[in-house]
């Protein structure tokens, strides 16, 4: 019999190269802890994140997906995060329709100076996702190895 393990969520975090990824680095430099469940994927800009990537993550068993970009108005590419904001609000309403709990997804603006905010955001996000338990609804069983 396998022991019932403590639930450890799988969290995918997309971070833009210019602000949020640097913010995550700063959190590291300042040794601000957040759970190891968070794995970061670097993208040039939050607007590079195709909603498909997020759906893919859920299909593959991610329990939460968070997308971080520069603050509105500070985008390295001037307008990228505005596209992100619009696209994600569309995606989130679709996920809502599919019955994916709202707390499993999040968009957060984290600047390169906000290491503390990055860590706090991740802690809070992981806590919420953990409370929700494993994501079952979008899991694609065909993917299971």
């Amino acid at each position: 019999m396998q022991d019932v393990k403590e639930f450890k969520p799988v969290i995918v975090a997309f971070c833009c190269n210019w602000c949020s990824y640097a913010g995550a680095d700063l959190a590291g430099s300042n040794r601000l802890a957040y759970p190891a469940d968070v794995k970061i994927i670097r993208v040039p800009c939050s607007c590079r994140v195709n909603p498909m990537f997020i759906l893919r993550a859920f299909q593959r068993g991610a329990d939460g997906v968070i997308l971080c970009g520069c603050h509105p108005g500070d985008c390295h590419y001037s307008t990228g995060n505005y596209y992100t904001r619009r696209r994600m609000s569309m995606l989130f309403s679709m996920l809502d329709f599919l019955g994916i709990e709202r707390d499993r997804t999040r968009v957060e603006w984290v600047s390169a100076a906000e290491g503390a905010k990055f860590a706090a955001t991740m802690n809070e996000f992981v806590e919420k996702v953990t409370a929700l338990g494993p994501n079952k609804r979008l899991e694609d069983l065909r993917c299971k190895q």
């Binding site: 995918v12 794995k39 994927i41 990537f53 993550a57 991610a62």
Partner: peptide, 20 residues
């Protein structure tokens, strides 16, 4: 598509992280 950050590359990273 974006060179260096291609769709299939990012998807591959997602898959590797989700390990399912």
């Amino acid at each position: 598509d974006l060179n260096g950050f291609k769709n299939n590359q990012i998807m591959a990273e997602v898959d590797a992280i989700c390990k399912m």
